Amino acid sequence: MKLEEDKLFSLVEEISKCNEIDIRDIPCIDLYMDQITTFFDEKLGHLKRDEKDPILTKTMINNYTKDKVLIPPKSKKYSKEHMILLILIYNLKQILSINDIKSLLKPLLKDLEVNGHENISLDHLYSTFIGIKTEELDSFNKDFENRLKRIKDNLSEKNKHEYSKHELLLVVLTLISQAYAQKRLAEKIIDSYFKQSK
């Protein structure tokens, strides 16, 4: 039982590490498409669930631009702003639909188009996001320990003698319940504040 629990906590520890792209690691020079996909594979490749899964492809980038989720490149080159937006899109698409992402980013893209980078501190927005995400992942580790204790306390004596699949099922169900509540709240915020009234 202890061995299985140690393995579970090592998985939590792996998730809790925030290995996001630091703002200082984002190139300040404009890049071509191939350079961008290579950059993302190098920096975020560790997040792949399956080695064959792409982090970002040319088709994805082209579709984001076509769907107006990403500002168009200039002379086939992508700026630091594009890179930050692509990182944000990558994070958002783990949970939200592309239509929700489009609604959420539309005001930001409009401001970038009208005012340019000078009036909008995309760097600051991104750095703030990474800082908060790091704190959230730190607390995730502690929250998980409490969640596991609650599950163990509620299992029958019969199941406590072995590290049962029931326990793991309850772990997954509680994780999904929390993720669902957070996803629904994010969707309600988008619906209430970012989607145009019909």
Results as ranks from 00 to 15, higher is better:
residue 28 C to W: 09
residue 62 N to K: 03
residue 139 S to G: 01
residue 57 T to E: 15
residue 16 S to L: 09
residue 41 D to F: 02
residue 39 F to P: 09
residue 111 D to F: 04
residue 58 K to S: 14
residue 98 I to Q: 14
residue 134 T to I: 08
residue 7 K to R: 11
residue 186 A to K: 00
residue 8 L to K: 07
residue 51 E to A: 14
residue 86 L to T: 01
residue 31 L to R: 04
residue 60 M to V: 02
residue 21 I to D: 15
residue 178 Q to V: 07
residue 111 D to P: 01
residue 25 D to Y: 04
residue 185 L to Q: 05
residue 17 K to A: 07
residue 9 F to S: 06
residue 117 H to T: 02
residue 64 Y to H: 12
residue 153 D to E: 15
residue 80 K to G: 10
residue 183 K to V: 09
residue 149 K to S: 14
residue 81 E to V: 03
residue 2 K to N: 14
residue 39 F to I: 04
residue 28 C to Q: 13
residue 91 N to Y: 10
residue 127 S to W: 05
residue 18 C to R: 02
residue 1 M to F: 05
residue 113 E to C: 00
residue 113 E to G: 02
residue 39 F to H: 09
residue 71 I to C: 07
residue 133 K to M: 09
residue 147 R to N: 11
residue 42 E to K: 02
residue 114 V to R: 00
residue 121 S to V: 01
residue 108 L to R: 01
residue 140 F to C: 07
residue 13 E to I: 04
residue 168 L to T: 05
residue 23 I to H: 06
residue 133 K to T: 03
residue 171 V to R: 00
residue 140 F to K: 07
residue 125 L to C: 06
residue 151 I to W: 15
residue 139 S to Q: 10
residue 119 N to V: 05
residue 75 S to P: 02
residue 184 R to W: 08
residue 49 R to V: 10
residue 76 K to H: 14
residue 188 K to S: 15
residue 48 K to I: 10
residue 168 L to S: 08
residue 65 T to V: 14
residue 55 I to C: 15
residue 70 L to R: 03
residue 133 K to R: 05
residue 138 D to W: 00
residue 100 D to M: 01
residue 146 N to A: 13
residue 159 N to E: 14
residue 155 L to F: 05
residue 2 K to F: 11
residue 49 R to S: 11
residue 187 E to I: 07
residue 18 C to A: 08
residue 167 E to G: 13
residue 152 K to D: 15
residue 86 L to H: 03
residue 158 K to C: 08
residue 165 K to N: 15
residue 135 E to H: 01
residue 25 D to L: 04
residue 171 V to N: 14
residue 37 T to A: 12
residue 157 E to H: 00
residue 192 S to Q: 11
